[in-house]
């Protein structure tokens, strides 16, 4: 992963979001981070269970929420997991899941710096 924040987050849109949310911006990021961490744990569980439909749902949720906080790279990785869940073939999921965890860590760092 590159160190350039633009590769992970649409910084211009994030600035807009910060303007909109004003005082609630930090709460939004906290909410996003807590929510995402719990979902990442959930993904670990459903991949272990081999539950493709559950994977699709959780990944769909991450895709949406990361999109809303302008984390486009994270959203894209979540989309790949969602697609696997939808196809019912999750053999490649553990590898993508690792990428998701790494991307989330990077995103989280950038977002926290933004506050």
């Amino acid at each position: 992963m590159s160190g350039n924040p633009e590769d992970h987050i649409d910084m211009e849109s994030l600035d807009d979001l910060k303007d909109i949310m004003e005082d609630d911006f930090q709460m939004l990021l906290d909410t996003f981070i807590v929510d995402s961490e719990s979902k990442i744990e959930e993904i670990a569980g459903v991949i272990a269970d081999g539950d493709a439909e559950a994977l699709r749902q959780v990944a769909h949720s991450i895709k949406g929420s990361s999109g809303n906080v302008c984390a486009s790279a994270l959203s894209e990785v979540a989309r790949q997991l969602e697609a696997m869940g939808k196809d019912g073939d999750i053999s490649g999921a553990p590898e993508v899941f690792e990428a998701l965890k790494v991307e989330f860590a990077t995103t989280k760092d950038i977002l926290l710096n933004k506050i």
């Binding site: 909109i20 709460m27 909410t31 996003f32 929510d35």
Partner: peptide
């Protein structure tokens, strides 16, 4: 159901 989504929308 997604807390952060709801928060953003609610604020807008």
């Amino acid at each position: 159901d997604n807390d952060s989504d709801r928060l953003i929308l609610q604020t807008i």
